[in-house]
Simulated assay, not measured.
Amino acid sequence: MTTLQIPERMNFSAVAPQVFKAVLALDAAARAGLDPVLLELVQIRASQVNRCAYCIDYHTSDARKAGETEERIYQLSAWEESSLYTEKERAALALTEAATLLPQGVSDEVYNEAAKHFDEKELAQLIALIVTVNAWNRMNVTTRKTPGTE
């Protein structure tokens, strides 16, 4: 089987190291206190919505390391139709999609459902995580970061 080779446009971390380090710092701060499995589910889902192959590859690998099952990873793109996710995870995934697809807006219903499952600090961390993964997605999609590379 021959695969299509899609060339990277640039090595963002080499060209803009200050920006890259700043996003790394934001990423580290956003992760603080969040459940590692939930964190990866959110990052995978945002990456699916944004069609970021690099981040999907990266975060599915990290999700497996955090103990996530193959079945839940496979069904994540259809989480609303799956019975495999908790109410808390579903609230986080709904907020992830709403905050990723901003033209649709983040409804009070979606926000309030997330607020029922996360205290205010956790909710702030979750929002920061969603912001961060969207930043990574946009950098990596724009520069065509190749899946499987560091």
Results as ranks from 00 to 15, higher is better:
51 R>H: 11
73 I>L: 10
72 R>M: 03
80 E>G: 12
112 N>A: 04
71 E>Y: 12
114 A>F: 03
51 R>Y: 02
100 T>F: 02
111 Y>R: 09
109 E>F: 04
76 L>Q: 08
100 T>W: 00
60 T>A: 06
67 G>Q: 10
131 V>L: 13
65 K>G: 00
96 T>A: 06
90 R>D: 09
45 R>Q: 10
111 Y>C: 07
72 R>S: 01
83 S>E: 15
88 K>L: 13
45 R>H: 15
86 T>D: 01
116 K>E: 08
106 V>P: 04
127 I>V: 14
50 N>G: 00
107 S>H: 09
115 A>I: 02
75 Q>M: 15
106 V>S: 07
113 E>Q: 14
72 R>N: 02
50 N>C: 05
102 L>Y: 11
103 P>Q: 10
83 S>T: 15
47 S>A: 05
107 S>G: 13
108 D>S: 02
118 F>A: 01
126 L>M: 05
53 A>G: 15
47 S>H: 05
122 E>Q: 15
128 A>V: 00
110 V>M: 06
49 V>F: 01
76 L>T: 12
64 R>D: 03
70 E>T: 06
120 E>P: 12
58 Y>E: 11
47 S>R: 03
95 L>P: 06
99 A>F: 05
54 Y>M: 04
104 Q>R: 12
113 E>M: 11
88 K>A: 12
104 Q>P: 01
89 E>Q: 11
75 Q>G: 15
112 N>W: 01
109 E>K: 08
67 G>S: 08
127 I>E: 00
76 L>H: 10
62 D>T: 12
132 T>E: 11
57 D>F: 01
96 T>Q: 01
108 D>M: 00
77 S>H: 10
131 V>G: 15
59 H>Q: 01
72 R>H: 00
114 A>N: 09
68 E>S: 05
105 G>F: 08
84 L>E: 02
83 S>M: 09
129 L>T: 15
51 R>F: 01
115 A>F: 02
73 I>E: 08
61 S>N: 13
105 G>D: 04
47 S>C: 01
61 S>R: 14
112 N>M: 03
95 L>R: 03
102 L>V: 15
106 V>K: 07
105 G>P: 02
90 R>H: 09
77 S>E: 11
67 G>F: 06
49 V>A: 01
93 L>Y: 09
92 A>D: 07
79 W>Y: 15
89 E>S: 05
47 S>V: 02
57 D>M: 04
106 V>L: 14
67 G>M: 08
118 F>V: 04
73 I>S: 09
127 I>C: 09
60 T>V: 12
114 A>S: 10
67 G>P: 09
110 V>W: 01
97 E>W: 07
130 I>L: 07
83 S>G: 15
82 S>F: 10
112 N>G: 03
62 D>A: 14
107 S>W: 07
45 R>L: 06
77 S>Y: 08
80 E>F: 00
50 N>V: 00
83 S>W: 13
128 A>W: 14
101 L>Q: 15
94 A>I: 00
107 S>Y: 09
107 S>L: 12
74 Y>H: 10
71 E>M: 13
130 I>W: 03
99 A>R: 14
82 S>L: 08
87 E>R: 12
87 E>N: 12
114 A>M: 07
106 V>H: 07
92 A>S: 11
62 D>K: 14
90 R>I: 09
101 L>T: 13
79 W>A: 12
46 A>I: 01
52 C>E: 01
70 E>W: 03
101 L>V: 15
102 L>M: 14
100 T>Q: 04
87 E>W: 07
98 A>E: 13
